[in-house]
Design a protein around this nucleic acid. Structure first.
Length: 307
DNA sequence: CTCCAGGCATGAG
DNA sequence: CTCATGCATGGA
């Protein structure tokens, strides 16, 4: 798995990433901190560092534009973030999903999506902001939040900032938060951050809770409902059975399983659980990206696109 | 101009 | 319990 290790300070980390789709994963709406920086280059902020990443053949090349506290082994940290240590699992999940007739066509044109392992607090706040919002604006809101409340990470002209700490958002004024473009979500973000602060070490222990209890804990937060809770379960706590239903996944499920008839989300969730079981989270990610991009494979009748 | 976006909180029935 | 409504903001 590990091809090379970082010896010097600035030497890039290179990791075997066979079957991984970097671009697809980074643009699949699970992280809001990555931007395309070239034809085959992605620049993003992970924890306390700025990364420049590209995928060549089956290899992932990661440059640390700014140092972060990754400890001794950067390879292990990067491997974990991109969830590359579970490549065999992704292969078996995919094999199971392909057996499902209704989504087979989607998987024939898409592959290699991973679920990133992101910081829980960042995901929690980011998806509170995501409610009734669009991805471009979510990215801008988080960018401005980081600029106002996050630690500066490099000294270049284009200064980049880490995601803010809970204390910073908890003590921010609602007016300031609104100035970041949060709108009516400003008080939710402030109160949710305050709740994380008051939970203290209890928030860290969320990671060890069984999924049902973790979901119940998340639903206690202001601004977190069923959909956002599922996003946090999936993207922050890697609970692969979670199944967030947004407008695109709703359209996908209704079209694929109910001839376009609109059903309540709880029924769609139950159906997803039956169809995909423990693989629902990854299935959801493929449905989301395919329907949001309006891929030809999402057309119900197989009619050709004449645009 | 209108419509829409990775929904939630609230109140009515 | 289920369902309808308002909500800030900005791009298309």
């Amino acid at each position: 798995m590990q091809v090379s290790t970082a010896i010097g300070d600035r030497s890039p980390v290179i990791i075997d990433a066979t079957g991984f789709d970097l671009a697809g994963t980074l643009s699949s709406g699970q992280s809001f901190r990555w931007r395309m920086a070239g034809p085959d280059e992605w620049r993003g902020i992970v924890r306390e560092s700025v990364l420049s990443v590209r995928q060549v053949e089956g290899l992932l090349e990661v440059r640390f534009v700014s140092d972060g506290n990754w400890g001794e082994n950067r390879v292990a940290g990067i491997t974990e973030y991109f969830d590359l240590h579970l490549q065999s699992d992704y292969a078996s999940i995919r094999a199971r999903l392909v057996r499902n007739e209704r989504i087979r066509r989607l998987l024939e044109v898409q592959s290699g999506l991973h679920i990133l392992r992101q910081e829980p607090f960042e995901v929690l706040i980011s998806f509170i902001i995501s409610a009734f919002n669009n991805i471009l604006r979510i990215e801008r809101c988080i960018d401005r939040l980081a600029r106002c409340y996050g630690r500066p990470l490099n000294v270049s002209a284009q200064l980049e900032h880490a995601f803010p700490a809970p204390e910073a958002l908890a003590t921010a004024s609602e007016t300031e938060l609104r100035a970041c473009g949060l709108g009516y979500r400003a008080p939710y973000v402030k109160e949710a951050a305050a709740r994380v602060v008051s939970l203290g070490a209890g928030f860290e222990s969320f990671a060890r809770l069984p999924t049902a209890r973790l979901r119940a804990e998340l639903l206690q937060f202001p601004g977190i409902g069923v959909k956002v809770a599922e996003c946090i379960l999936l993207f922050a706590y890697h609970r692969l059975e979670a199944f967030p239903i947004d407008v695109w996944v709703r359209r996908a499920m209704c079209q694929l399983y109910y001839r376009g008839r609109r059903l309540p989300d709880r029924r769609l969730a139950a159906r997803a659980s039956r169809e995909f079981g423990a693989d629902a989270g990854l299935a959801q990610q493929y449905l989301f990206t395919a329907y949001r991009a309006r891929l030809p494979s999402t057309r119900s009748d197989g009619a050709r696109d004449r645009m």
